[in-house]
Design a protein around this nucleic acid. Structure first.
Length: 874
RNA sequence: GCCCCCGUGGCGGAAUUGGUAGACGCGCUCGACUCAAAAUCGAGUUCCGCAAGGAGUGCCGGUUCGACUCCGGCCGGGGGCACCA
């Protein structure tokens, strides 16, 4: 038997055999229980990186483990193949996005295959293939028919140089990430999916996802952002008479006389301005704290609120203020330090619970048009922003919530009080708790008709239009006569044209000479195709369904898909916690609502793995160096932080040469060892070498056993201690794989390996080696097959049974009992498992050390935990 | 600002319901084999101490016979969200 395991030769041989035999094809129609294991499919950006290797290795171990435990396993792979990078490449390298993408897919597929993943390649799909996106277009039309798709004008980030819409993530400090041009807000007609229809379901559904990380559920909960509260109307006070507000005060800086128009001589001779006639007589505000309504001291509206717009007509000061608000930076840091600014419009509004009480109306920079109603009432005593604002503009601050009756008149200082308490200074609400107060005010508002209880969501409908070429064409035709018309099903897929040009910025579909020109499917008149494509998140919102079932003539077969779904274990990066996972959940529920698929949640179990990190190096001028460069660099080198592998920091490690050098198994082993899978894993040369040594160690053990052959069965009889270790390892490795605690499963395997190495030859030892090979096979499958064959076992270890742990062998016969005095360890003793309390106490007190420490005195108390410890309280 | 997670040897990290802290790996030290090296094997490796012994899971306090684990208050690191009314 070869002294060393040679992965260069063995890996390919086994990979070929698995492929030829279809070892990892999902059957889907036999009697075995089914398991669907899925990792987030990759974007074909060029080459596989270590993050992929880690992600797919984890899924692979689980998939192989499930197969060995008698499951029919679906473990597919595909390509999230649409996206902007391909267009960027087209512009930079003058290659067609499709060509670039497909060639990347070929490269990456070959790289993945070299890692020996137990994937069902017969189900491979790429979202850029018309045989995929054509079905997506059909589903889009299904949702459209069901009223879950609509079109509306919406503001987008427009890059005037690249002539394209940018995602929020592509706007950096107000500029396009590529062109550097100042981004404009433009109104465009966009297609939207009604995800808000499902807001409550998506929120409630989180409660059922008990196999999801709490962190992800929390992030989705915050993203959906449900706020219960009340909407109510403020009537504008009459604008006639000396209180005429129409010119506004124009003050944007603080003044103590709030709304003190009379002091401004200009206002006296102000012409009666037209504003009131074009002004609505009332507007709505939203609040989560209707109980604090008697603490109101002002109302404020967003700069782009219709009333603000109307008032700014002919009021230059206000128009200027509004313009100023729009210029503000949008970065987190800028917002945090941004000053609360307002503009007193001079208009007054009537308090809904007291017609004689009016409040000044401000336009304020911190009120957002796209949340709630774009208008608020300010209650400075109990909201920090309102308090800052009130202090600045000299508005009254009235406490209406007090933690105790004694503090009812306690003035508010620099901090708003948002804690619990009872209502004060609030007329009929006095004495109520906040909750009761909220209920009471809503009840009264609803009875009197000026407001109602309501729920406001942070979640917005999903805008799916992208002014891009490399995406799924939206299957709609715009007819001059009929408006937007769905492309008839028989004409799907709407295929992207291949002959396009990227020389000019903008969407090539728009400029294509013929593609968009069509006849209206309804009236036959002249029409134009929708040239926007779908957000690529749509592509990834249903690929897991297509994996489960892929008929040619429809997106999926319902009963076949339902047999596999939901995905039992989904594994991927935490960066997809919100968007991808929320969209996929929405899409699945939408399909359920329209009766296409009876699945509520797509992913039963979710696991988010950590990143692969590596040290960074910089030279004296701050330039990033690769580890190789750092070694040979002549000047001083600064060893930087351990960071996520990235091209810009030059600390990436390409998996392929590593596989060339050490083989797939060593790489896989390293990806699983050391760090818990949810945390970051630091790549290191020492680490991969350690893995390589283990692979060889395992091989030595197996090949020695194979060489020894039948003679070992004539050995020294059973080795009970080793048998125990084997069965404990069987139980532990299995439990740890199921818990996705791969690092612990690895530790179990190390331990078993050491135990076997130390054991003398015996039948026990031979079967221990066989068990070890089976237990390690999900992690190091090539080596395991090689060892399995060398030991003369039939078939593939990939198809072998996972060994069964004998419960009788899981417990030790002799246990070590800790003996403590006052909780401190002083001695240990050995006793048969299950020794009774009295005996253990006697044994402990008989110990010389313990007797010495007690100094002849009787213990005050003795605590005995059977099979664990005796604690003597002196 | 709000929310969440995490602080354990030189390093990555183990530790069922509170019950022998440091499993396992990396690194390091010593030894064996070797002309030598690599590979491999053996022993050791929390800290202080020759030892007996003592201290020890970010810090301070509490509950308990007993706390890495539970509670309160700090400090430090990471992540998410954000003028969300």
């Amino acid at each position: 038997m070869a002294a060393r395991f040679n992965p260069l030769e063995a890996d390919a041989r086994w990979q070929k055999l698995w492929e030829e035999q279809g070892t990892f094809h999902a059957s889907g129609d036999d009697s075995r229980p089914r398991a669907y294991v899925l990792e987030m499919f990759p974007y074909p950006s060029g080459r596989i990186h270590m993050g992929h290797v880690r992600n797919y290795t984890m899924g692979d171990v689980l998939a192989r483990y499930r197969r060995m435990n008698g499951f029919d396993v679906l473990h597919p792979m595909g390509w999230d193949a649409f996206g902007m990078q391909a267009e960027d490449a087209a512009m930079e390298k003058k290659v067609h996005p499709g060509e670039w993408t497909r060639s990347n897919i070929d490269t990456m597929r070959a790289q993945l295959k070299r890692l020996g993943f137990a994937l069902d390649w017969s189900r491979e799909l790429a979202t850029c293939d018309p045989s995929y996106y054509g079905h997506e277009q059909a589903l889009f039309l299904d949702l459209h028919e069901a009223g879950l798709v609509y079109r509306k004008q919406s503001e987008v980030n427009w890059d005037p140089v690249d002539m394209t819409v940018l995602a929020n993530e592509q706007v950096i400090d107000g500029r396009g990430w590529r062109s550097g041009a100042l981004v404009e807000r433009r109104k465009l007609s966009q297609w939207f999916l009604k995800i808000t229809d499902f807001a409550d379901d998506l929120l409630d559904g989180l409660g059922e996802l008990d196999q999801w990380p709490d962190k992800v559920r929390l992030m989705q909960e915050n993203w959906i952002g449900k706020s219960r509260g009340m909407r109510f109307r403020f009537e504008l006070a009459s604008t006639e008479g000396s209180e005429s507000p129409s010119t506004g005060s124009g003050r944007t800086e603080g003044g103590s006389e709030a709304g003190g128009m009379g002091s401004n001589p200009e206002s006296v001779r102000a012409e009666p301005v037209e504003a009131p006639s074009s002004l609505p007589s009332s507007f709505e505000v939203f609040t989560t704290r209707p109980d604090t309504i008697f603490g109101a001291s002002f109302a404020a509206i967003a700069p782009d609120h219709p009333i603000a717009q109307a008032l700014s007509d002919g009021n230059e000061a206000l128009a200027g203020f509004i313009a100023e608000c729009k210029q503000g930076g949008t970065t987190a840091a800028e917002l945090e330090t941004a000053e609360k600014k307002g503009f007193d419009t001079g208009v007054r509004v009537i308090h809904p619970l007291d017609p004689d009480w009016t409040l000044p109306l401000y336009v304020a920079n911190f009120v957002l048009m796209d949340y709630g109603t774009g208008a608020i009432f300010g209650c400075p005593a109990h909201d920090q922003r309102d308090l800052d604002f009130a202090r600045k503009y000299g508005l009254p601050v009235t406490r209406v919530v007090a933690p105790s009756p004694e503090e009812a008149e306690e003035p508010i200082g620099d901090e708003a009080y948002s804690g619990p308490g009872r209502l004060v200074n609030s007329r009929f609400l006095d004495g109520l708790t906040a909750e009761d107060g909220i209920r009471e005010v809503i009840a009264r508002a609803e009875a009197e008709g000026w407001g109602q209880g309501t729920t406001v969501w942070r979640l917005r409908d999903w805008g799916v239009s992208r002014q891009r070429y490399w995406g799924t064409p939206i299957p709609i035709v715009h007819c001059e006569a009929c408006g937007p018309v769905a492309v008839p099903r028989g004409q799907l897929p709407v295929v992207l044209p291949e002959d396009i040009d990227f020389e000019t910025p903008g969407n090539p579909l728009d400029r294509h000479p013929t593609w968009a020109k069509v006849d209206c499917p309804d009236c036959g008149g002249p029409a134009r195709r929708e040239t926007d494509t779908l957000d690529t998140f749509v592509d990834s919102s249903w690929y897991f369904i297509r994996f489960a079932s892929q008929p040619a003539d429809e997106p999926f077969d319902r009963s076949e898909a339902e047999r596999w779904l939901p995905v039992d274990q989904y594994i991927g990066g935490v960066e997809h916690s919100i968007l991808h996972l929320l969209y996929a959940r929405f899409w699945t529920r939408a399909l359920q609502r329209i009766g296409k698929l009876d699945v509520e949640e797509p992913f039963k179990g979710l696991f988010t793995q950590g990143m692969v990190t590596h040290v960074t190096f910089q030279d004296s001028e701050g330039r990033w160096l690769t580890p190789d460069e750092a070694e040979s660099h002549l000047g001083p080198v600064v060893r930087g932080r351990v960071e996520k592998m990235s091209k810009s920091k030059r600390n990436t490690v390409d998996p392929e040469p590593i596989v060339d050098q050490y083989g797939a198994d060593a790489v896989r082993w390293f990806m699983l060892s050391d760090s818990p899978p949810e945390r970051d894993l630091e790549w290191s040369e020492a680490g991969i070498q350690g893995s390589w040594r283990f692979v060889q160690r395992l091989w030595r053990l197996a090949s020695e056993e194979a060489d020894r052959g039948v003679s070992s069965w004539l050995g020294d009889g059973e080795d009970k201690a080793l048998d125990r270790k084997v069965h404990q390892a069987i139980a532990a490795v299995g439990a740890n794989i199921e818990a996705l605690a791969f690092n612990k499963a690895i530790a179990n395997l190390f331990e078993l390996t050491s135990a076997i190495e130390k054991a003398a030859p015996s039948p026990s030892r031979s079967s221990a080696v066989e068990a070890l090979v089976r237990l390690a096979s999900p992690m190091v499958p090539h080596l395991a097959e090689e060892a399995w064959a060398a030991m003369g076992r039939d078939g593939l270890v990939a198809e072998a049974q996972w060994p069964e742990a004998d419960p009788a062998l899981l417990v030790e016969e002799e246990v070590t009992i800790a003996v403590q005095v006052n909780g401190k360890l002083r001695d240990t003793l050995s006793a048969p498992k299950g020794t009774d309390r009295e005996t253990l106490e006697e044994m402990a007190l008989a110990s010389e050390k313990i007797a010495g420490l007690l100094g002849g005195k009787a213990p005050r108390k003795v605590i005995v935990v059977p099979d664990r410890l005796v604690n003597v309280v002196a």
